[in-house]
């Protein structure tokens, strides 16, 4: 169920569910933590062997996977910790400064 909290600031106590219940599960997806980042991961698709090690150790569920393959990073939630780059056995992931245009351009 989608819980619409867009105008929560104007709610009175009557609109808040009793007991501080959060009626929608997993809605922190709507909360952006990507701004914490000073470095951003970049993946070289040529080098990547799709071993998925980065996916299983990401603390922020920020490695997007489709069809058993890593596709992109969820940059809305990635905090730039760099674990993915650290565990990659073939150095296919590199941490690049946030804000730089494109990787490879170091």
């Amino acid at each position: 169920m989608k819980w619409d909290i867009s105008d929560m600031d104007s709610w009175t106590y009557k609109q808040f569910p009793p007991g501080a219940v959060i009626p929608e599960s997993g809605n922190s997806d709507d909360y952006v933590t990507g701004g914490w980042r000073s470095e951003r991961p970049w993946r070289d698709d040529e080098k990547c062997t799709q071993c998925l090690l980065c996916w299983i150790v990401c603390p922020d569920t920020s490695i997007n996977v489709a069809g058993e393959k890593v596709t992109t990073f969820d940059l809305d939630h990635c905090k730039g910790c760099g674990i993915c780059a650290q565990v990659c056995p073939v150095d296919a992931i590199e941490m690049v400064p946030e804000g730089c245009d494109l990787p490879g351009v170091k």
Binding site: D29, D30, V32, C58, P59, D60, V65, G80, G82, I83
Partner: peptide, 22 residues
């Protein structure tokens, strides 16, 4: 495992690199 649902969503406020969420 990638076919199973990830039951911890992103957007939590644990520190970058936290072992607990892993």
């Amino acid at each position: 495992l990638t076919h199973r649902e990830d039951r911890l969503a992103g957007g939590h406020r644990l520190c970058a690199g936290c072992g607990a969420s892993i």
